[in-house]
Design a protein around this nucleic acid. Structure first.
Lengths: 207, 207
DNA sequence: TGCAAAAGTAGACTGAGTGCAATATAGACC
DNA sequence: GGTCTATATTGCACTCAGTCTACTTTTGCA
């Protein structure tokens, strides 16, 4: 990734990491709300103003890792083989994420990742920020569906909304299990079955 | 409703209305963000502190009308006849809302209601608040499904999430048409067809 | 080495939301 | 009527997130 970004870029990258890591450590120790931006800035040894130039809002200090996946679903739909339906492509990508223990699926064993899950589940503001991420992702997906599957506006939006709802519900369910102490290996079969169920419902309906 | 609530209660009711109406009028004239809580309080002739005792957050000055419907879906599922599936009950209730021009469906002709739609669509903070409302509604619905349809946790959550996604998508689509100037009578057939399509997809699947 | 661009800093400012202590008022009871 | 209590309302000071501006430092490159 960052083989040759120049000193400036590498330093920025490191500063960004430092700020986020420092923030998460503080939030884990004292909770999200009680820790102020000023405290985070002091602990990370940057000015408040600099902190805000890296992370536009306090919530982003925690959730930015997820925000990076904002366009993933849209990309997957655009990049799918010609003979694959959008829903199959999305399903395959989600199952692949589970298999790879992608943090975004909620199946993961890294203590820091689990700590972030816990923080999100325990903090309404962070939960809200995560929902906002799913919303952006949904909007991008709807656009991709309109363009590549030649769907009218509303049907594209409906499909995107339903997929997004399923993805969010599955991930948050996995978050809860991980926070409760279930290891990724133990949670995986259940998570897989849940995903199969959910995508089955999407394809074949609830009736 | 308020036949005999005592002077105190009636006065509170009136104050609440006055504050909200004043706020919406100001927001419509100048936009949501540029108008401060202090300005609203002054215009409504109450103290800032009193305003916050009626509405816990600035966004609620606009969205509280929707927040009142927070438990509607859950109620509908609990009150359904024994021979009706949850999804049928929810579908019937939504279609009934369209027919009644219930503001929450986005099919409505009152200028003030349409103005609120516009405000919500134009203001990210209000849109976010509306999404939060759908989330609470979804959680309540999931509980109702667990309890009355005897579903396990995750399936109940999945159904609630999918219904909620559909309901939100349909309503926002109707909001957009209303704001664009389509009358309720003109929008109704399309909205009805869209709802039938969406609930059909929910029942029979996207595949 | 020198210089322009980018990154970082300091500090004042706005505006939402809260805590607290003092005042006003509705309604019940005598 | 008058008095008492619970509840509404108020003013004021406070915290904290996020922004603006003007200034300094660092970096990459010539």
């Amino acid at each position: 990734m960052d083989q040759h970004l120049g000193l400036r870029e590498r330093k920025k990258q490191r500063t960004r990491e430092t700020i986020s890591d420092t923030a998460i450590a503080l939030f884990l120790e004292h909770g999200f709300d009680p820790v102020s931006i000023t405290q985070v800035a002091e602990a990370a040894e940057v000015s408040r103003r600099t902190l805000f130039s890296y992370f536009p809002a306090k919530e982003d200090l925690v959730v930015h890792r997820f925000a990076d996946h904002e366009d993933e679903s849209a990309r997957v739909v655009r990049a799918r083989p010609a003979d694959q339906s959008p829903l199959d492509a999305l399903r395959a990508n989600f199952l692949d994420g589970l298999r790879r223990h992608d943090p975004i699926t909620g199946i993961n064993d890294h203590p820091e990742v689990i700590a972030i899950y816990k923080l999100i589940l325990d903090t309404p503001a962070l939960h809200a920020r995560l929902v906002k991420f799913y919303e952006s992702s949904e909007r991008a997906l709807a656009d991709a569906l309109r363009e590549t599957a030649d769907l009218p506006e509303l049907p594209a939006q409906l499909i995107a909304a339903q997929f997004s709802a399923v993805q969010r519900t599955l991930a948050l369910d996995n978050f809860r299990r991980a926070v409760a102490g279930t290891t990724a290996a133990d949670a995986y079969p259940d998570a897989l079955a849940a995903a199969e169920l959910a995508f089955g419902q999407l394809r074949d309906g609830l009736g």
